[in-house]
Design a binder for these strands. Structure first.
Lengths: 163, 163
DNA sequence: TTGAATTTTCAAGATTTATTGAAAGTTTAT
DNA sequence: ATAAACTTTCAATAAATCTTGAAAATTCAA
């Protein structure tokens, strides 16, 4: 396979992956592009390569920076900013996990905490208390596990399972 | 807090969670509704409770069934179908994980497999090979870990981390 | 069979989310 | 201070996704 075609596949698959997480396709595609680029890229290069607008490129590069998935690089004698991706895949996974925890787990924890003291003694109230308590317990354990994972290194993590 | 308000919160939070996974809001809300219901519910009850159309209710109930997050129950002397949720939260997590693996991990595995033999000796080709190999390695390890998790029971799973 | 009850389908419409592009803002060199 | 280079913003537009509702299909009892 030619590099051109492979790049296209890689970028499309990564974009698809992004959509499945509620990450914009452009953000995931820029990430893919930077991941496979041997050198930092400017906004203009990104726009051209992916056929997206300046505004879109800029907004999604900022988002990648805020997730810690890309970094800035200033080239000597150059005014414009260049961007490069975090290439340690374990680190990428941890950073994505951290954002997903923020968006998925935390709202659930907040909610179960708010609803835990419900009035009523009928079946509906009892079932509600039971289920929301279970959900809360599970969410807290998951939070603890994610915190441990985010401090572990890759080989430690996989050894937990493989033994 | 009154049950009515708490239910509303629970259903909204669950719907939000669903959107963050690329699950339709209605599907997640029906799931929430069945989770906290002490008895199986019919399509008509679901429609009424969530203010959604028949088509929407039907389609998303089918989807819940296909994920294994809800089951059918036939009540004696009743023609219509009733549905109830899987209430074991660990089981819910495993089933959601299985679907997400299908939608997120498998396409990446397929892609890295397709692009692994790339032509070229220049920097771009070399970087591409390197990154896609890393991604492939990580994806395969993650797949193995998920398979182990999906066979484990809850306490085994959390003990892996807590010790 | 028939027809009433129920479920399923799917094109059209509604909603949500992402993207564009041009204007405004900022920075830097001179 | 000015202007060119570059970045950011955001209202308008486009694209993707979800929902509706009514018609078609199915099921079941008589």
């Amino acid at each position: 396979m030619e590099l051109r075609e492979a790049k296209e596949n890689f970028i499309q698959a990564w974009g698809q992956l992004g959509s499945n997480w509620g990450v914009s396709k452009a953000m995931a595609q820029i990430h893919a592009l930077l991941l496979i680029s041997p050198k930092p890229m400017s906004t203009d290069e990104i726009m051209k390569e992916l056929n997206i607008s300046r505004g879109n490129a800029n907004m999604n590069v900022r988002e990648l920076l805020s997730w810690g998935l890309a970094y800035k690089k200033f080239l000597p004698g150059e005014r414009r900013e260049y961007f490069f991706a975090e290439k340690d895949i374990w680190d990428v996974a941890k950073k994505v996990g951290r954002e997903r925890k923020k968006r998925e787990l935390e709202p659930v924890l907040k909610m179960v905490n708010e609803v835990k003291d419900i009035k009523g003694r009928n079946k509906h109230a009892q079932e509600f208390r039971k289920v929301s308590k279970e959900v809360g317990k599970f969410a807290r354990k998951t939070e603890t596990a994610l915190d441990l994972i985010s401090r572990a290194n890759e080989s430690t993590f996989f050894k937990w399972f493989m033994k």
